[in-house]
Design a protein around this nucleic acid. Structure first.
Lengths: 188, 188
DNA sequence: TCCTTTGGATAGATTTGCCTATCTTATCTT
DNA sequence: AAGATAAGATAGGCAAATCTATCCAAAGGA
């Protein structure tokens, strides 16, 4: 019956349990006991690794961020590249985004992290590649590409997620790209 | 020394204290004791009016929402109308928006309220007037006015607030209106 | 196989916040 | 001026969560 987890495997199980607990109950209802119970272990196991609740939350967020890398698509068209990225974000990061913005007010003040850092795929430059390629293909007018416009579809996606707390329907993604983003970069 | 507050004045003072407490510490750290102390009164005074913490939070939000009405401007140009609305929101509702989105996860589940309802000035139709007038003046192409595009500047403003937790600089507001919104409704 | 390391169970001390009971005192009404 | 009403102080019971002390048991290494 024993079959005990140890070391890294145990640590991952604890952080996963903490993450589930965070998304289920939010920061307000987040208790060490609940994490212990969800992970099927006992308090000292938790306290040996993280001295208090805040340390555990920070480690949990860091752990999830590490695993949340998104790689940049290359479909051959800007429309599909942007939509692919948006769909990827939409399907994998809704919990992360809502949690970070909705539940973790205190987290920011301590760490200096900003929620903005959560969406740019692979840092702030990762997304630039798809615009460079689109410009080389002649799909867009490069002079239209301000930082704001490059960020626009992702900002709007993030906004939808933050206001609805749910994944965004695919036709909304297409509406954003086709009626807002593309007209701006193609110049009508 | 006494000079006791009573009735409506006391109630307002309590709700204001609760509001300050909410924005200062967030929902997680929001305690009845802290509100009592901040208001300079004692527990029974609070509990005679609101049976528990959740009721107080709900009453506080309702109280703030009541006082947060924004009226629709009529400057003669769409650009100024939109900018005026955005500036008004920017200067009066940053705390409200961040709090509602960042701290009050539990509030929504109970009340069914959605954060989206916080920005549309005077309900969802209030803002429509400025677009009607702009169309009558011939400033814009009415067929461009989808719901999404009408909401666009306000969605982007809300997004900025949610990501930075601070008022948005005026030049950012102008950038949004001049490089994103107006090109879309004027058709280039 | 022995022994060191580490996971896990249990119980409890401590803190903190919720909420109530009781009493005093100010203010309003008549 | 007297009585009714409501504010405010104080104290405390209760519940829940934090964190620790102590012990036992399993896994891995020598």
């Amino acid at each position: 019956m024993p079959e005990r987890r140890r070391g890294a495997a145990l640590e991952k199980a604890l952080l996963d349990a903490a993450w589930d607990e965070l998304t289920a109950t939010g920061y307000a209802g987040f208790t060490m006991d609940a994490v212990v119970q969800r992970a099927g272990t006992s308090p000292p196991v938790l306290y040996r690794r993280w001295p208090d609740r805040d340390a555990l939350v920070r480690a949990t967020v860091a752990h999830v961020l590490e695993q949340a890398r998104i790689d940049v698509p290359d479909t051959g068209s800007l429309r599909e590249d942007v939509l692919t990225l948006m769909r990827e974000i939409n399907s994998t990061r809704v919990r992360l985004i809502t949690l970070m913005n909705v539940h973790l007010a205190g987290y920011y003040q301590e760490t200096g992290t900003r929620p903005g850092e959560l969406l740019s795929p692979g840092g702030d430059d990762g997304g630039d590649v798809i615009f460079q390629r689109a410009a080389e293909r002649g799909e867009i007018r490069p002079e239209r590409l301000t930082e704001r416009i490059k960020a626009l579809p992702f900002d709007l996606l993030r906004h939808e997620i933050l206001v609805t707390f749910a994944p965004v329907p695919d036709d909304v993604l297409e509406e954003i790209v086709d009626t807002v983003f593309l007209p701006l970069v193609r110049g009508q």
